[in-house]
């Protein structure tokens, strides 16, 4: 990479940081408990809208992993999400009515919060329907992972988005509050992913899975990106560029090995496709606040809903992280 390109990326990073600074005005603090954050705490950042039904399990899942504090931006929920979060002892909540799209799908808001609160911490950035799985997550907490990453001088940890879906119609099985959504959406595509390298930012561009197979078969280039780097030892000079797909400085995007080896990596199990998806799709389609003009919501709404069974004969049923490791979706790397 030449000096010129490196300089341009630097300018771009500054631009995102300034943008985050500007967008902070859109955030209104609902409850700020960040004074409880101790220097070694693990932080979780999320943006959400009307996800109240998912929140109890979401919080429980990440508390069990060892997250110490949740910093959440509520984008104009009207289902009580905000109130529910404000009651939690380890959650700080900001709320905003501004456009999700114009905050670059929430990235600007979170960049600001991360800049302010995550400096020197391990920061996990996920959506309420994403569940992090990493090697040995059944026996070792997230702290074990971050300690190991620290000891190995690794600053960012990749976790591809793995779309989970139920067998049969998406809305066949109703989701109960507090339930593990992976009990319903327990199937996934194990080996149909496409990877390209993004030379500008040095990250991988991963597409595929059930959404590409069902909704984007004719326009595969438009299929949603699945590469994510959700766990970062944050520094206030960092910035997410587009969702958690890539960051600047670009060295953080190098979560893969280029010389034949495997780095350690995890997965974000994406439990989006449960019965709440239909209502969500209808609402979001009206708002048009989602990526690529809400293409997948449109595809879903366009009648695919009636017979949209993402399941196929070759779908795999989720068991545990070891299964995902053997299938080659994630790797232990040299962590043993």
């Amino acid at each position: 990479m030449g000096v010129w390109q490196s300089y341009r990326l630097r300018i771009q990073r500054k631009r995102w940081r300034i943008r985050a600074l500007r967008k902070r005005r859109e955030l209104r603090s609902v409850i700020n408990r960040t004074d409880l954050i101790r220097p070694s705490d693990l932080l979780l950042f999320a943006t959400l809208r009307n996800e109240e039904i998912r929140l109890p399990f979401f919080l429980k899942y990440y508390r069990d992993l060892g997250i110490n504090h949740f910093l959440i931006v509520d984008n104009d929920s009207d289902d009580g999400s905000r109130e529910f979060l404000a009651e939690q002892p380890d959650v700080s909540v900001w709320s905003t009515r501004a456009s999700y799209k114009r905050a670059r799908f929430g990235v600007d808001w979170l960049n600001w919060l991360q800049r302010k609160y995550a400096h020197g911490h391990w920061a996990l950035t996920v959506d309420p329907d994403e569940f992090l799985v990493y090697p040995f997550c059944d026996t070792r907490g997230l702290r074990a992972l971050t300690d190991w990453l620290d000891a190995s001088s690794i600053k960012s940890f990749g976790a591809m988005l793995l779309d989970m879906y139920p067998k049969g119609r998406i809305d066949a099985q109703p989701y109960r509050r507090g339930q593990d959504p992976l009990e319903i959406a327990c199937w996934f595509d194990s080996g149909n992913y496409s990877i390209y390298r993004n030379h500008a930012f040095g990250n991988l561009w991963i597409q595929g899975g059930p959404r590409a197979r069902k909704f984007f078969a004719d326009t595969p280039h438009a299929a949603p990106a699945l590469n994510k780097i959700p766990l970062v030892k944050w520094d206030k000079s960092y910035a997410y560029v587009s969702s958690t797909h890539m960051l600047l400085p670009r060295g953080l995007n190098l979560v893969y090995d280029e010389w034949g080896g495997e780095k350690a990596s995890g997965l974000l199990l994406h439990a989006k496709f449960i019965d709440t998806f239909a209502a969500k799709a209808a609402e979001e389609l009206g708002r048009g606040q989602h990526y690529a003009a809400s293409q997948e919501y449109r595809a879903y709404a366009e009648g695919l809903a009636e017979n949209a069974d993402l399941w196929c004969k070759w779908s795999e049923k989720y068991i545990n992280w070891r299964q995902l490791e053997i299938l080659g979706l994630m790797s232990k790397g040299n962590w043993a």
Binding site: G158, A159, M160, Y193, I195, R197, L204, I206, N227, V255, Y256, D257, E258, W259, G260, G261, E262, K263, A264, S265, G328, L329, M330, S331, K332, G333, N334, W335, A336
Partner: peptide, 28 residues
């Protein structure tokens, strides 16, 4: 156990392309 871990980190599983193993050409 640990020798295997080192081997996975340095040589990886041949023919696997995934989020944390994407070898440059001729390093596969």
């Amino acid at each position: 156990v640990f020798a295997k871990a080192v081997d996975r980190r340095t040589r990886g599983r041949p023919g696997l392309y995934m989020q944390s193993r994407f070898p440059n050409e001729n390093w596969e």
